[in-house]
Amino acid sequence: MLKDITLGQYFPGESFIHRLDPRTKLLCTVLYIAALFMAKFFISYALMLFLLVFSVAVTGIRPSAFLRGLKPLLLIIIFTAVLNVFYARGGTQLFSWWVFTITTEGLKTAFFMVLRIMLLICGTFLLTYTTTPMALTDGLELIMNPLKKLRVPVHEFAMMMSIALRFIPTLIEEADKITSAQKARGANFETGRLTERVKALLPLLVPLFVSAFRRADELAVAMEARCYRGGEGRTRMKKLCMGARDFLTIAGFSVLLAGIAVLSSLGL
């Protein structure tokens, strides 16, 4: 069903990684990505790969979930691989025909490039699979807090994002329900010419929009009734709070970044 798309992002759990502060996870993801772009050679990549596999094991999420996530990007990965194989020059020549030349260097670059993309994607999956969208927005808001000094409406953006995230599953569920109700009256969403199909969407879109506006209206009234007036002076019920494990993890990732930088400069 449609609903699986968004809900499938988060895998509930109680692992060490699940319990990390969202800010820690955001920061570590950034550090990991930075390290990935510095990594140049085998040992660095092996280290990065090991770290990812280890983290996935810690979360207890099935590795197949990550592979499934990679599937939509398969085309891009293959494209990158092919491009790199033929573009990179240097090393010994293995094969040559017309304008196509394959060298050992080309193969190596392609291999690392693909590995890098896959690690990059899986690393970000690790973040979204173990953090609820709400926690993620909260974390982002706190990280961006300093921007408030520059009059960036950080709180408003975060609020908009949480509301949107909150309503995506609701609207999808509603779309599912309306689709079923119209199908029960013989609506046909699957066959017909393009114009017919677009027209067939009306019985779905009209009630969906009506209800989205109704919900937005009700939400606005409900928020005003509780005296919501933006982020000024607002306190939180659930305060995000960094603990020893968060500092430890951030320190670990900082060391990793430094380590990869050193390894790369040594050509390892």
């Binding site: 109700a181 029960a184 019985p203 009630p207």
Partner: peptide
């Protein structure tokens, strides 16, 4: 088999 959904008023369009 005609099916009237729960809260069918939200399907009027």
């Amino acid at each position: 088999v005609g099916l009237v959904f729960q809260y069918p008023e939200y399907q009027l369009f």
